[in-house]
Design a protein around this nucleic acid. Sequence first.
RNA 1: GGAGGGGUGGCUGAGUGGUUUAAAGUACCCGCUUGGAAAGCGGACGUGGGGCAACCCACCGGGGGUUCGAAUCCCCCCCCCUCCGCCA
Length: 426
Amino acid sequence: MRFPMLDPKVLRESPETVRAAIARKHLAIDLDAVLELDSAWRAQLSEVEVLRSRQKAANTKMAALKKGSPEFLAKVQEMKAVSAEVKAKDEALKLLEEKWHAAMLSLPNIPHATVPEGRAPEQNVVHATHGETGSASPHALPHWEIAGFSNLIDFARGAKVTGAGFPFFIGEGAKLSRALLQFFLDEDVKAGYTEVSPPIFVNAASATATGQLPDKEGQMYVTADQLYAVPTAEVPLTNFFRDEILEEDVLPVCRCAYTPCFRREAGSYGKDVRGLNRVHQFDKVELLKWVHPSSSYDELEKLRADAERLLQKLELPYRVLLMCGGDLGFSQSKKYDLEVWAAGQKRWLEVSSCSNFEAFQARRAQIRFRNKETGKPELVHTLNGSGLAVPRVLAALLENNLQVDGRVEIPAALVPYFGKEYLSFK
RNA sequence: GGAGGGGUGGCUGAGUGGUUUAAAGUACCCGCUUGGAAAGCGGACGUGGGGCAACCCACCGGGGGUUCGAAUCCCCCCCCCUCCGCCA
């Protein structure tokens, strides 16, 4: 049995809830067709099961009969027909089930009541803004235009060696990148997350469980033996508990992981992809939580606060967006984006996306906990968010902290990691 | 990469075509017993799906096949163990 992402019971008992969710996410889905498939599938299932029941009953009788006896042979003839019927109906059932499954996969997660109405990114709500964005020094430059930038981050040679979007980080560029990673991990561990270093390739089953497959197959790099380079640590981390039942006591489980992230970014173009804004390989620390359903929205606020604290300690201006229904991902119930201000480009760069998936991912990955009172397994709620993505934070740091003399001031919190108070492009 | 051996419930482990409705043990849970516990005795004890329910169906690593009928036979794949080879 493969699992849909939305609870089929919600669809049956309250189709209007699903209809409303589709509307709030501004998706075009023919729900009536899905409902029709659902009842057709159930009807067919019941037909097959009745026949199977007959087969089982006959089986028991035949076991008691003498092998070659006329009664036995008659029974074999009788059951041959039933067997053929089961085979045919079972085939039809499988076809229906495939359609049903595909239809169920097309149904999005239901947005939380606090998600604002809206169709496009412009309708996201600015939940909070921290730090100054207006007073950037007049000499602020996009990071790729800073004199000597390619001494630290070399895109040209990366393109020669691998391809566009695979830069080399050199000298103090590499050191700054590593300092940020170390800082993020240390802070996340302090906040209660257990550090994990996961595999950076996953198999198809894992990529399917977190939803990268089949929809985003074109966004992943795949090896000759069908392993997928992770687009985010979310994939191996979430799959850690796939097909497992946890004890209720262990919740919430909070983990963080650094991995390089690989994204083909097919279809991206223009100013979005300049410099470090969008690359095919980048370092990121991901935060992940497996929580009791009753606390997932509290945990979402904590997760967001944990990610925000990193930007605060780096003294970078940023804002928090509460995503509107139309800009909410397919599988999310509620999502905040953290965007750092890049003073040179004069634009916001997304560095973290903190989401509550409720049971949507957990159902697909079959991650459950045993309810202590009932003794029955229930789906956990999963949440994740970056804490944080390195290159864009690094870019913002370069742009915001660029001094008149061409050096970059390192924030106090990062100095112990970087080892110096200023970075130089020479 | 090569050769061999394995994969059955939380765990141990029986089962090589049909009363298997997966034995038995063990752990956990609930009783009885006890001053309390252990032992002992009794009961309960997997997951998913369908059904208002009674109940029914599926699941023995995964997927196909043979058969009236598959945990059991056949094919493909995955994983684990032992040895060999290669190697950071």
